[in-house]
Computed example of a mutant assay.
Amino acid sequence: MPALCPECENLVVVDADAVEEGDLLECDECGAELEIVSLEPLKVVLMDGLGYDDPEELSFADEVE
């Protein structure tokens, strides 16, 4: 399941069977720390050291052009 990094807009591939809501990912392109906030549909948010850097949730796959 693909997701867009909100920092660099790189596609990050996520195995939906291997992750849960609340899991953290790292973008392979820019190294940004991302938190999965929803699996159906897949949504992630950019994290900073104190929590959410940008509260806007981003969804992926079907919205990627």
Rank of each mutant, 00 (worst) to 15 (best):
Cys27Arg: 00
Ala32Gly: 12
Glu40Ser: 08
Val44Ile: 15
Val12Thr: 14
Val19Ala: 03
Phe60Ala: 07
Asp28Pro: 08
Asp23Gln: 11
Leu34Cys: 15
Ala61Phe: 02
Glu9Asp: 06
Glu56Phe: 04
Leu34His: 10
Cys30Gly: 05
Asp17Arg: 09
Ala32Ile: 03
Gly51Glu: 09
Cys30Pro: 02
Cys8Trp: 02
Pro2Met: 14
Asp54Tyr: 00
Gly31Asp: 09
Glu20Val: 08
Glu20Cys: 12
Glu56Lys: 06
Leu24Val: 15
Glu63Ile: 08
Leu39Glu: 15
Asp15Ser: 10
Lys43Cys: 01
Leu25Lys: 14
Gly51Gln: 07
Pro41Arg: 10
Cys8Thr: 02
Asp53Trp: 12
Ser59Gly: 05
Pro41Thr: 04
Pro55Ser: 12
Glu56His: 05
Lys43Leu: 00
Val64Trp: 11
Ala16Gln: 13
Asp62Glu: 09
Glu40Lys: 09
Cys5Val: 00
Glu35Gln: 15
Asp54Glu: 05
Val37Met: 06
Leu25Phe: 14
Leu24Asn: 15
Pro2Phe: 12
Asp28Cys: 07
Val12Trp: 06
Glu57Trp: 02
Leu58Arg: 03
Val37Arg: 10
Ala3Met: 14
Cys5Asn: 00
Leu46Thr: 14
Gly22Met: 11
Cys30Asp: 12
Pro55Lys: 14
Glu33Ala: 03
Val64Leu: 14
Cys8Gly: 08
Val44Gln: 05
Met1Ala: 10
Asp54Gly: 05
Ala61Asp: 13
Glu33Ser: 08
Pro41Ser: 11
Leu46Asp: 11
Asp15Trp: 07
Gly22Arg: 13
Val37Thr: 15
Leu24Ser: 13
Glu9Thr: 09
Glu9Met: 04
Gly51His: 11
Gly31Ala: 13
